Amino acid sequence: MQQLTVVGGGFAGLVAAIDAAEAGARVTVYEAHRELGGRARTASGPYRTNEGPHALYRGGPHWAWLAERDLIGPLARVPLAETLRLRLHQDGRLRRTPPVPLLRLARRPVTDAPVDRTFLSWAAPLVGERGARQAANFLAVALFHHDVGALSAAFVQERLVRVAAFPPEASYPRGGWQSVVDRMAARARALGVRIETGARLTGLPGDGPVVVATSLAAARTLLGDASLTWESGRTVLLDLALDARRGDPWVLSDLDAPAWLERFTGQDPGLAPAGHSLVQGQLPIGPGQSKAEGIARAERLLDLGFRGWRERVLWRREALASGRTGAVDLPGTTWRDRPAVDRGHGVYLAGDQVAAPGVLSEVSFNSAREAVTLAVRGGRPLHTTA
Rank of each mutant, 00 (worst) to 15 (best):
Q2R: 15
Q3Y: 08
G9Q: 12
G9D: 10
A17H: 15
A20C: 13
E22P: 14
G24V: 09
V27T: 11
H33V: 01
H33L: 09
R41E: 09
R41F: 04
N50S: 13
R58N: 02
G59I: 13
A64I: 06
W65F: 06
A67N: 14
R69H: 10
I72T: 13
L84F: 14
Q90M: 02
Q90R: 14
G92K: 01
L94H: 04
R96Y: 03
T97Y: 04
P101S: 08
P101G: 08
D116E: 12
D116Q: 02
L120M: 03
W122H: 05
A123P: 09
L126T: 13
L126F: 04
G128F: 09
R133I: 00
A140W: 00
A142S: 11
H146S: 14
A153T: 09
V156K: 08
R162V: 15
A164S: 14
F166R: 15
E169V: 07
G175P: 12
V181S: 06
D182N: 15
R187G: 10
R187S: 15
A188P: 14
R189F: 06
R194F: 02
I195G: 12
P205M: 11
G208H: 13
P209A: 15
V211S: 14
T214I: 05
T214L: 15
L216D: 12
R220L: 10
R220N: 04
L223Q: 09
G224I: 04
D225E: 15
L228W: 09
L228G: 11
T235F: 07
T235M: 04
L238N: 02
L240G: 13
A241I: 05
L242T: 03
A244D: 14
A244W: 10
D254T: 00
L261W: 07
L261P: 04
E262Y: 02
T265C: 03
G270L: 11
L271R: 14
A272Q: 05
P273T: 11
A274K: 12
S277P: 01
L278T: 03
Q282C: 09
G286Y: 00
G286D: 01
P287R: 00
S290H: 03
E293Q: 15
E293S: 14
A298Q: 05
G305V: 08
L314N: 03
R317S: 11
S322H: 13
G323Q: 07
T325K: 07
T325R: 03
L330I: 07
L330N: 03
P331R: 03
A340Q: 14
G344M: 14
H345E: 15
G346A: 12
G346Q: 06
L349Q: 13
Q353N: 11
L360N: 11
L360M: 07
S367C: 12
L374H: 08
V376T: 06
H383K: 04
T384N: 01
A386W: 02
A386M: 01
